[in-house]
Structures are given as structure tokens and as C-alpha cells.
Nucleic acid binder design. Structure first.
Lengths: 196, 196
DNA sequence: TCACTTTGTTAATGAGCGTTAACGCATTCC
DNA sequence: GGAATGCGTTAACGCTCATTAACAAAGTGA
């Protein structure tokens, strides 16, 4: 795991702030001037780094989907042959993502329709592949589940894990570790109960 | 249960179409002309029925929260004394809502920030009461859960149940009954697993 | 019949906002 | 030193869109 120590590039600053603002108030609810102000420059100054507002959203969503998929593939390979372990690893990875990048997880299922056709197709394809990894693993752990049932179950567990933005900003949470553990148990319990 | 047989009023038509459009493309992504067109009148014609676009969203969100809370209270009273039964009833009611009114369930946690302060406070208060009903019942069924843990668990199960908009529009679903049953099992499994 | 309300219409207004133009100023690189 | 490039700025353009104005027509009721 390569940890970054160098300062974030301007592009990265912009993406981070844009993600936060988009998640808070929606893509259409945020102006370019606001995004610029969040990184200390003017609105039009953003156009030195991105082709437009759409391009920021596109890069964010493609990036998220790609990261999730890449992580999923890696975890699948790492624990190949032990489905239980793979499933635990997938759940853990998704929880880390949901807890550490709440704005992104929010965007991920909220602003997809604002993308150009080609970008949206790409994101959908990445999402689909990610889902299919989960479906395959879930069916190995719970063979009694039909494929459609498993797919529904996976989407529902995503809903469960992606609920982190609703979990009270800071104070009310019983600590990151405890929350992660709770979500993990619930996800496993939900899958187990899915097979009747 | 009073079933309506009379034709929907114009106001109701507008609210229904507005809900669908807002859910599809976001509050800011929909113009008043579109909403008008969806019910066969012009955009400005809407102003005979609502004070503005904001008022439509407000009425939708307050209505949803109110319905959920009312239903929750009723179910709590109906099966008072039998927490297991109350929890089943709450889950069933929420699933019915999530399956029958997908656009509303989408709006419910997506567009809350677009409301005027007073409306947002009202909606938040209704939501909070609804959550508290669930938290109380869940802690009766699973006394080993601390209150914060139970509250997190409830929010997460809402995320699970509210995942219905992601569950493939029509063809891929294994039928409404089967989907409802699956969601119900998963919700119960998640709660059970929440208490370690 | 005649006023009044209800429910529409189209045209105009005015604000917001994404984007582009035109320009300035360091830094870098022959 | 001087051209090129990177990264900002402010001003202006043009479009979208919520809202309002002004007007019309159909029902309703005394």
C-alpha cells in the first residue's frame, strides 16, 4: 500500500471539494464559483484544470466505480478459493470506502444521470462488473440463493452499507471501529437471512 | 382502510408527476414546464395550484414523512405488547412503501436540503419520531443493543429497504411478493446480527 | 343576464449560472 | 534576455428557468 506524502495537486483539491459540495447540495445545486472558492480560486479559474463542470462529475464517478472494481478484483484474487474470506474482504473494503469517502458514496448512486451518455455507460459497466463479483461470491457462500435473488440481496446490502451518510455526522457515532464492525455483522446477517 | 375510487384531483396529479420527475432527475434538474407538460398544462399554469416549485417539494416530503410516521404509530398501537410482531409490521409497512412509491422513497433522503428551513425542520422532526419508534421496538426485541447501536442499525436497515429503486426496473425482479419477502428476511437477519 | 371564480393561456421579466474572452504575471527553458 | 507556458484574474455573453403579468374562456349562482 503506497501512502502519499506529497501535497495534493490542484486538480485533486478541486475534485475533493467538488465531491463534497455535489454530495451536500446536488450537482445542479452547486455553482462553479462555489467550487472555485472552496479551493481559493475564482470560478472560471477551474477551466484551466477541467473542461467544465460536467467533466469534474464524470471524473469523480468514473474514478469511484473504477476504484471499487479494482479493489474488488484484488480482494477476489487475494483470497481466491475461500469464498467466506473473499466475502468478508469485500464487505470490509466497501465499508472502508463508505466510511472514508462518504461524499463519493453519496454521489455514486445519486448523480449518475447527469453524465454524458458515454460516461454513464462506462460507469454503469464498471458498477455492473463490481456487482457481479459480489453476486458470484455470495452464491458460493449461499448456494441456495438463485442468481436474481443474490443480485437483489447484493444491491440491498449496498444500500445498507451506503447508509453511512445518514449515520449522524460525528458525535453520535460509537467510533469508527465499532460502526464498521456493526455494519459488517449486519451485512453478513442479511446475506445469511436472504437464503431462507 | 378507505379506498379511493374518485378521480385524482389536479393537485394530486401534479404531485405524483412531480415526485416521479424529481426522483428521476433531481429537483434542480426538472423544470416547471416539464411538470406542467406531464399533467397536460403549461408550466405557469401550475401556479394556480401551488405557490411555487419549492412548495411542491415541501408538500411531497412533509407528506411522505407524515405518512410513514402515522403508519408507524398505528402499527405500534395495533400490536402493542408484542415487540416481535410490531417489528414485523413496521418492516412490512416500510417495504410496502418502498415498493409502491419508489419515487417518493428516493426523494425522501435525497432532496431534503432543498427545503426552506421551517419545512426542513418539520420533516426532520417527523423522520426522527419515526426512527425513534423503530429504535424502541428494536431494543425490545434485541435488548443487548445499546441505543446508539440500535439507532445506527435502524438507519442501516432503512438503507437496505430503501434500495428498491436500484433493484432493476421490472423484468429482473422475481415478482413483488418474493422481493418483499426477501427484503423482510434480510432486514430481520440484519437486526439479529447487529446484536453480536 | 351578469358578475365572479376557477383554471388555463402566452408573453415578458429578471436572476442565476456555465462558459468564453481578454488580459496579467510568474516561472521555465533555450 | 526573451519567448513560451502555466495559472490566475475580471468582465461579458448567452441561455435556462422560476416567476409574474395580462388576458381568455368556461362554469356557477343570484
Amino acid at each position: 500500500m503506497a501512502t502519499r506524502t506529497d501535497a495534493p495537486t490542484r486538480r485533486e483539491q478541486i475534485l475533493k471539494e467538488a465531491a463534497r459540495l455535489f454530495a451536500e447540495r446536488g450537482f445542479h445545486g452547486v455553482g462553479v464559483d462555489e467550487i472555485g472558492a472552496a479551493v481559493g480560486i475564482s470560478g472560471p479559474g477551474l477551466y484551466r484544470h477541467f473542461a467544465g463542470k460536467d467533466a469534474m462529475l464524470a471524473e469523480l464517478l468514473v474514478g469511484i466505480s473504477g476504484q471499487l472494481l479494482t479493489g474488488g478484483k484484488r480482494r477476489l484474487a487475494e483470497s481466491a478459493g475461500d469464498p467466506e474470506k473473499v466475502l468478508d474482504s469485500l464487505i470490509e473494503g466497501h465499508i472502508d470506502f463508505a466510511l472514508d469517502d462518504r461524499p463519493l458514496i453519496t454521489l455514486h448512486d445519486r448523480e449518475l444521470d447527469r453524465l454524458r451518455d458515454s460516461d454513464r455507460k462506462l460507469v454503469r459497466q464498471l458498477q455492473r462488473q463490481y456487482v457481479e463479483i459480489w453476486v458470484g461470491v455470495v452464491r458460493e457462500v449461499h448456494p441456495e440463493l438463485s442468481e436474481p435473488a443474490a443480485r437483489s440481496a447484493v444491491h440491498s446490502v449496498f444500500g445498507l452499507l451506503n447508509s453511512t451518510p445518514h449515520l449522524g455526522r460525528a458525535g453520535s457515532l460509537p467510533g469508527r471501529g465499532a460502526t464498521a464492525a456493526l455494519l459488517h455483522r449486519m451485512a453478513k446477517g442479511a446475506f445469511a437471512a436472504a437464503g431462507a
